Simulated assay, not measured.
Amino acid sequence: MNYNHPINSFKGKLDENAVFSILIPTWNNLDLLKICVESIEKNSHFKHQIIIHINEGTDGSLEWVKANNYSHTHSDQNVGVCYALNALAKLATSNYILYINDDMYTCPDWDKYLMDAIQEQGDEYFYFSGTMIEHTGKSNKCVLSPYDFGTTADNFKEKELLDFLKTAKKSDWFGASWPPSIVHKKIWDKVGGYDIEYSPGFGSDPDFSMKLWDEGVRNFKGIGKSFVYHFQSKSTVKVKKNNYRKTFASKWGITSSYLYKTVLRLGDNYDGKQLVLKKNFNYFINKLKAFYLTIK
């Protein structure tokens, strides 16, 4: 796929008191995009800057974003999440950049719990994620599932979800690496955002985490109280996957699975201990696996 399509930028309404700059890439998914944006506006504790990238926009999403005067970027064809996020970040005005998918519904005070964690951190060297509630699957230790509150905009059971949240509990967890995810803008700028070599985007999440690690970030924490409902809309089935495992192994000398499981301890209950990269026997075995991936 050719990603050399022009991306146009438009500055919309701006709240000078915006706490997060929220980046939302979307691809002809207007019904869920509306739910996502409306949930941010009604369920957030703070005011935020919402910035939306429209891929194609043949479903009316471009007209909807313009009509509501949201800051946005637009490409005539799908350019993938890496190009989209980098374009959106150029319009960010707050100290914090948060990436969220268009098929997510933010639950009440989702942002307050993230900000509480940021304030507790006390510096810029963090990467935090909210906790997803999903309607399918049981193996992902980072999410609450299976709790089915709808798979589309038409069958979304919002009231049932809000009732469920009154008793829902999830501990903080290690390994934050995917949306909804938040990082300080200074750190985003230092690492240069998302690398376009992963376009259309498969593997860009662990790569971004590895870039943060290389910059000195050690607190990768999922915030258990910061819930979003994830519709698990499958836009990814419409694009050809890039060979991200090979790209990651060639770039970093370890596998992305090793980063997640062994270094970031993805899904383990958070105990406050600093993450470390141990250069032990297993580390060197993994480096051999990574080398093998690069020559396959």
Rank of each mutant, 00 (worst) to 15 (best):
M1Q: 13
N4A: 05
H5R: 08
I7H: 11
N8H: 14
K11Q: 09
K11P: 00
L14I: 11
D15E: 09
N17F: 02
F20V: 10
F20P: 15
F20G: 11
S21Q: 12
N29S: 13
L30F: 06
L33H: 07
L33Q: 07
L33T: 14
K34V: 15
I35D: 02
E38G: 08
E38W: 10
F46K: 05
F46D: 07
K47F: 02
H48F: 00
I50T: 10
N55C: 14
N55H: 15
E56M: 04
S61E: 06
A67P: 09
N68M: 02
N69G: 04
Y70V: 02
H72C: 04
Q77P: 00
V81G: 00
A84H: 07
A89L: 04
S94W: 08
I100Q: 10
N101Q: 13
N101T: 04
N101D: 12
D102Y: 02
D102M: 01
T106D: 01
C107A: 12
W110V: 00
D111M: 06
Y113K: 09
Y113H: 15
M115Y: 13
M115K: 11
E120P: 02
D123G: 11
D123H: 08
F128C: 03
G130T: 09
G130E: 03
G130C: 13
T131C: 14
E134V: 11
H135G: 08
K138A: 03
S139F: 08
K141W: 02
L144A: 01
S145T: 12
Y147T: 03
D148T: 05
D148Q: 06
G150W: 13
T151Q: 15
T152R: 09
T152M: 06
A153P: 03
D154E: 15
D154T: 08
N155W: 14
F156P: 07
K157C: 00
F164H: 14
L165F: 10
K169F: 12
K170D: 00
D172E: 09
F174Y: 14
G175A: 04
S177N: 13
S177H: 11
P180A: 11
K185R: 14
D189Y: 12
K190Q: 13
V191D: 10
G192K: 05
G192P: 12
D195H: 12
I196F: 07
E197R: 12
P200I: 11
F202L: 14
D207Q: 03
F208Q: 07
F208C: 07
S209F: 06
M210G: 03
M210N: 05
L212F: 08
V217Q: 05
K225N: 14
K225L: 09
S226F: 00
F227A: 00
F227P: 07
F227H: 08
Y229K: 07
K234I: 07
T236F: 03
V237Q: 15
V239Q: 14
V239H: 13
N242A: 13
N242R: 13
N242K: 13
N243H: 13
Y244P: 14
T247W: 01
S250E: 11
K251A: 01
G253P: 05
T255W: 02
S257Y: 03
Y258P: 10
Y258E: 01
L259E: 01
K261F: 01
K261Q: 10
T262S: 08
T262M: 03
G272H: 09
G272F: 07
K273C: 06
V276D: 07
K279S: 07
Y283H: 05
Y283C: 00
Y283I: 00
Y283D: 00
L288N: 06
L288R: 12
K289L: 05
T294I: 08
K296H: 09
